[in-house]
Design a protein around this nucleic acid. Structure first.
Lengths: 186, 186
DNA sequence: GTCTATACAGTGATAGAC
DNA sequence: GTCTATCACTGTATAGAC
């Protein structure tokens, strides 16, 4: 049997392996095994090897978030965009079964390799959310605080969801964050 | 030159390498290089190799948190214990320059190797905090929610701190979490 | 574009001198 | 308890046939 892939397919498959194993944990042999792509195919798509794979995976993820979340937050009606953000986040992370690869890369020393895309991703997310909140009438200082809090809260919820045996913890955390964002009473 | 270490010293040194590089990223050669311990010494202390090192490091971290945070939360005056928790957390994570190794292990597939200690650590932290809040007069449902939110928030703040170039983000996030916990108005 | 075969540096681990 | 030398193996990466 012989299956022919296109590069976008390859990126999506490789992304999933990095998510499951991390950058160092994802060896070329685990990647070939789980993607069913041979080394030849992988090096054909990614002449730069593992590092290029990770870089393109990060760019692919960033593009998804830009399209589904950042751009709406930056341009659309704030309330609609924020609502869409929560549903997109819950879907994307599969209710906590999937992690945020960019968050995981931030934690270990892979961060040094991909510092710039990692930083940009979080900065843009926070800025976009902060902007939407301000357009919705929240004062500047509070908007920034709420935006940081929400983005951090999502990352924390992912850690907790993976650590815990409790399947409901992610959606529960998300619901709490959502409420805090929509009715900021302190 | 020849320096003689005791096992507790070795554990602390190895812990720092795992924190910086992750489990897969910390090879025996990086461990020997950064700890200045030879392979012989390391295998003398940890006959089970890398896996035993990580297991003992996790146990060591868990013991620290138990002593400084969990036990106070479980037994001492709630307000005092919670205040102590926030200062201990800020110190331990060096204002966000240090990560939570257990949180990092939760994210990649190292989780499967050390699932039980990882789960236990977070469960105990949340339970202990929840208990302290209840003893302080917070209703049960809200106490659980606040406890989960605080622990997740700390993990999220660590991710953000590492991703960001902004040195102040961790302490700012911590201050927000602290305030939410002490005056839970929703 | 896919595959197998191969190079060779680096991996975790062991043995044994001191 | 520390060290060096060495093991078998897996790691990434390349070459070339199809």
């Amino acid at each position: 049997m012989r299956t022919v892939f296109e590069k976008p397919d390859a990126i999506a498959l490789v992304a999933e392996v990095f998510r499951e194993c991390g950058y160092e944990g994802a060896s070329m042999s685990t990647i070939t095994a789980r993607t069913r792509l041979s080394k030849g195919s992988l090096y054909h798509f990614f002449p730069g090897g593992k590092e290029q794979m990770a870089a393109e995976v990060l760019a692919h993820i960033d593009a998804w978030f830009a399209r589904e979340i950042f751009v709406p937050l930056e341009t659309a009606d704030p309330q609609t965009a924020i609502a869409q953000m929560w549903t997109a986040v819950d879907q994307y992370f599969r209710s906590g079964k999937r992690i945020c690869l960019i968050g995981a890369f931030a934690l270990d020393e892979t961060r040094d390799r991909f510092a710039s895309p990692v930083r940009t991703y979080f900065e843009r997310w926070i800025k976009a959310l902060e902007g939407a909140l301000k357009r919705d009438g929240i004062p500047a200082g509070l908007a920034k605080q709420l935006a940081e809090d929400a983005v951090a809260g999502i990352q924390g919820a992912l850690v907790l969801a993976r650590a815990s045996a409790d399947e409901t913890v992610f959606e529960r955390s998300l619901a709490g964050l959502r409420m805090r964002l929509s009715s900021p009473k302190r």
